[in-house]
């Protein structure tokens, strides 16, 4: 395994930690935090791909003409910028669902909710 790929290894380590929180924890708020960590990992995967060594932020200085300045790739930045804002909107939607679940079941732990549901059926 070569360490030249450290940026991918880092993103994947974050992604796996986020996924681990989502599938191993019962608390729903903790699951949302895990999903957010997962999202940040994906954003890192894109942003590290857009970096160019020796490049600068994609903002053209007033005295620049043509190609003499090297810029990092702006496309991943644009995509991830909107993804973050949409991410917080969907996080809020998920959290409000958790609030309603808490009000209906009296708990925000998934195994308790499943147990209460099973009791109601049988």
């Amino acid at each position: 395994m070569s360490l030249d790929q450290w940026h991918h290894i880092g993103s994947i380590a974050l992604l796996c930690t986020g996924l681990y929180i989502v599938i191993s924890r019962d608390n729903l708020v903790k699951k949302m935090m895990g999903l957010n960590i997962f999202q940040v990992a994906v954003i890192f995967f894109y942003v590290t791909m857009g970096k160019v060594t020796g490049g600068t932020a994609p903002i053209i200085p007033a005295d620049a003409h043509g190609h003499e300045v090297l810029y990092s790739n702006p496309i991943p930045h644009v995509l991830m910028l909107t993804a973050i804002v949409v991410g917080v909107a969907t996080t809020a939607l998920g959290l409000s669902l958790i609030v309603r679940i808490q009000e209906a079941y009296g708990t925000a732990e998934e195994d308790e909710i499943v147990r209460l549901d099973l009791e109601e059926i049988g």
């Binding site: 954003i43 942003v47 857009g50 970096k51 160019v52 490049g55 932020a57 990092s72 991830m80 910028l81």
Partner: peptide, 8 residues
């Protein structure tokens, strides 16, 4: 910021 993605 280190990765030049100032807007992000």
């Amino acid at each position: 910021t280190l990765m030049d993605a100032v807007d992000v």
